[in-house]
Structures are given as structure tokens and as C-alpha cells.
Design a binder for these strands. Structure first.
Length: 353
DNA sequence: TAGGCCATCTGGTCCT
DNA sequence: AGGACCAGATGGCCTA
């Protein structure tokens, strides 16, 4: 019967392996001692022999004395074919009880592994929330999240090291280093930087930036994010809309005077980087790159203005209506926002010194 | 249909 | 010995 099962093409590989494995010990009795469990691992090697790692066959940790007591298994001889007779450990025959125990142990290991991966994914989700362009519904891939996080840390480190206001374009370039095109567009969109121009600048190093009077926010971005379509980033224009949309959370606090954006497009505020940008904004000097840093300025000052005045209109330092997305000002939720607030204040203090 | 991303299973290795 | 960690394999889902 096991032979039939083993030859059944529709069977999953595990069943096939298990069938061949169990067949080898079909004639075995069930009264083996518990110490046989020690060899379950060796037997599991045996069940995958010929398919997974043949090199492992000779590497099992069975004792030499047991080797002499055990007989060579028939199945192994078949699979080994013309290979020289193995000197390595022999595989113990499986009893039904041992098979059951092994199955249970494997299931437990699988469950642990699942939980471990879930924990890992949860940590990644948390990381997504603190890197630029966080969205609940449109998640960055794992690898992009890690890359963006690395770039983000690097960018912030450079800012702290230099103690100077960063150039927006350079900042975004740093953030997007090594990122895929869709993620680059998303980050640029979230930072309200036209990715087309940003990418051009990457090549030309022109450093030119669309100033507040430009229509950067409405520029259709050239790339449609593959996995973003239908959610946050049907195009990078959508990302711009995101950046400009007043979030409901912000609305509830500061009032809503923004157009009626589709709230389903983005269901979570952006992550801190834009807030970090705001930290640079309190320096309202008239540096030559003021235009480039326009958004750094307007984000934070807009927040300050709206907080102090109580109205929901967001104005840049020049008084122009910015239309800035409140998510740029507020992290993904109140809890995190409060947790991070001291850090922002420290950064503000740093940039005021 | 190919390619990217992901979840899961699995066996090996290392550590406690 | 058991658990954690890792990497390979596999299959599903989605999009271009």
C-alpha cells in the first residue's frame, strides 16, 4: 500500500517521503525502547535521502557501537546504487510510535517557526511605521523596508553629524538609495518631491527643486507602482494626493478645510521622516537653498501655525497655503506620536543651537 | 506567462 | 534534548 502511495503523483512530497520512510520499517515491531527517539533525526535524514541532501547521509551522529549493531537498510542500499558502502551511521527502523512522535515534534517545530516568522513580520510592520511612507494598506516589501530603514538611519545620522539643514533633494536621494523604482516614487511622493525631477536630479546633480509655486504635487509620476495600484499608489500622483490630503485624525484635532479626498486611499498617516523634516523648519533663515527646503519649512511651521491659531489651514512660512498633508506632521497614531515627541523636541533644540 | 513577493514546511546547525 | 535560527524548496497570489 505504501508503495502505491509513494507512486501516486498527486501526493505531496511529504507524504511520499513519509511513505518511503515508513515502508522501510514496516516490518518493525513497536516495542523498541525510548532511546530510539534519539535516532529519529537520522531517520528523517533517511526519508529524504536521494532527494534532499545526500551528503548528510554520512554525517549523522550515531555512535560507532550502534553502527555495528544495526543492519544496513534495504532502501538505502537501493538508493545508493553503485556508491561505495557507507561507513557512516545507520538509520534506525521506524516504529509507528516513533513515526507519531516524530510527526508531533515536526508539527510543534512548524508551529514555532510560524510564530517566529509572525514575530519577525510584526517587527517589520513596526519598522514600516517609523520609516518614510508608511501605509497600513500598502506595505513596503520586506526588503524595501529594510533598505529604506537603513537609508533613513544613515540620512539622520548624517544630519546629526553635520548639524546642518539638509538639502531636500539630497535627503530624498539618500533615502532612496538602492530602492526600487516604485519605492523611490513612493518616497518622493510622500516627501512631495516630484520623482521625475528627483530622478533627473539624481543623474544631473542639478539640485533644482520645485518650489512652492510649482505644481509639483500634481505632476503625474512616470511609474505606476506594481503592488500599489488599487490602493495607496495607483500612481505617484496618488502619493502626492496622499501627501496633500488632510488626514482624518488631523482633521479631528485641527479642523478640516481640505478637499474631500477619498479617505480609503490612505488609511494611515505618514511616518516620522516628514516630521523630522519639520524639525529643520524652525530655522527660518533665508539661505540660498530655501526653496529646496521649502517643504521642510512649511511642514513644521504649518503645524505650529495651526496649533497656535487653531485653524486648519496650513500655511508655509511665506504665508502661502501649503495644502500639506497632516500625515506629514503626525506619525501613524497618537501613541507613537507621543512616544516620539521628545525626540523631535531634542532635534529641534539641536537645530536651534 | 514570467517575475516578484510572501507564507509555510523542512532539515541542519548552534546554543542553552 | 529542545528550542532558536537559518536557508532551501515549494506553492500561492498578484501584476505587468
Amino acid at each position: 500500500m505504501l508503495t502505491r502511495l509513494f507512486s501516486e503523483p498527486s501526493l505531496i512530497p511529504e507524504v511520499q517521503k513519509f511513505a518511503s520512510w515508513a515502508e522501510d520499517c514496516d516490518d518493525d515491531d513497536d516495542d523498541m525502547s525510548d532511546k530510539d527517539e534519539e535516532e529519529e533525526k537520522s531517520l528523517q535524514d533517511g526519508k529524504t535521502e536521494g532527494s534532499l541532501s545526500e551528503s548528510k547521509e554520512d554525517g549523522d551522529m550515531m555512535g560507532e557501537e550502534e553502527e555495528e549493531e544495526e543492519e544496513e537498510e534495504e532502501g538505502t542500499e537501493e538508493l545508493d546504487g553503485e556508491r561505495p558502502k557507507k561507513r557512516g551511521p545507520k538509520k534506525r527502523k521506524m516504529t509507528k510510535a516513533r513515526i507519531e512522535r516524530s510527526k508531533v515534534r515536526r508539527q510543534k517545530a512548524n508551529a514555532r517557526e510560524r510564530n517566529r516568522m509572525h514575530d519577525l513580520n510584526s517587527a517589520l510592520d513596526n519598522l514600516r511605521k517609523v520609516v518614510p511612507c508608511y501605509s497600513k494598506t500598502q506595505k513596503l516589501s520586506k526588503i524595501e523596508t529594510l533598505r529604506l530603514a537603513k537609508n533613513y538611519i544613515w540620512a539622520l545620522s548624517e544630519i546629526l553629524r553635520s548639524g546642518k539643514r539638509p538639502d531636500l533633494v539630497a535627503y530624498v536621494q539618500t533615502l532612496c538609495k538602492g530602492l526600487s523604482q516604485p519605492t523611490t516614487n513612493l518616497v518622493a511622493g510622500c516627501l512631495q518631491l516630484n520623482s521625475r525631477n528627483f530622478l533627473t536630479e539624481q543623474g544631473q546633480e542639478s539640485g533644482r527643486y520645485h518650489g512652492p509655486n510649482s505644481s509639483f504635487a500634481m505632476h503625474p509620476y512616470p511609474y505606476q507602482c506594481p503592488r500599489l495600484s488599487g490602493s495607496q499608489c495607483q500612481s505617484s500622483t496618488m502619493a502626492s494626493s496622499h501627501a496633500l490630503r488632510t488626514h482624518g485624525y488631523y482633521d479631528s484635532i485641527y479642523g478640516n478645510t481640505s478637499p474631500d479626498y477619498n479617505s480609503s486611499e490612505y488609511d494611515a498617516p505618514l511616518s516620522p521622516p516628514l516630521c523630522i523634516n519639520g524639525n529643520f523648519s524652525l530655522k527660518q533663515d533665508s539661505s540660498p537653498d530655501q526653496d529646496k527646503n521649502y517643504h521642510y519649512s512649511m511642514h513644521y511651521s504649518a503645524l505650529q501655525a495651526s496649533r497656535s491659531s487653531g485653524h486648519g489651514l496650513l500655511f508655509s512660512s511665506s504665508g502661502m497655503r501649503s495644502g500639506v498633508h497632516s500625515e506629514n506632521l503626525l506619525p501613524y497614531d497618537m501613541h507613537v506620536h507621543h512616544d516620539r515627541a521628545p525626540m523631535y523636541e531634542e532635534l529641534n533644540a539641536f537645530f536651534h543651537n
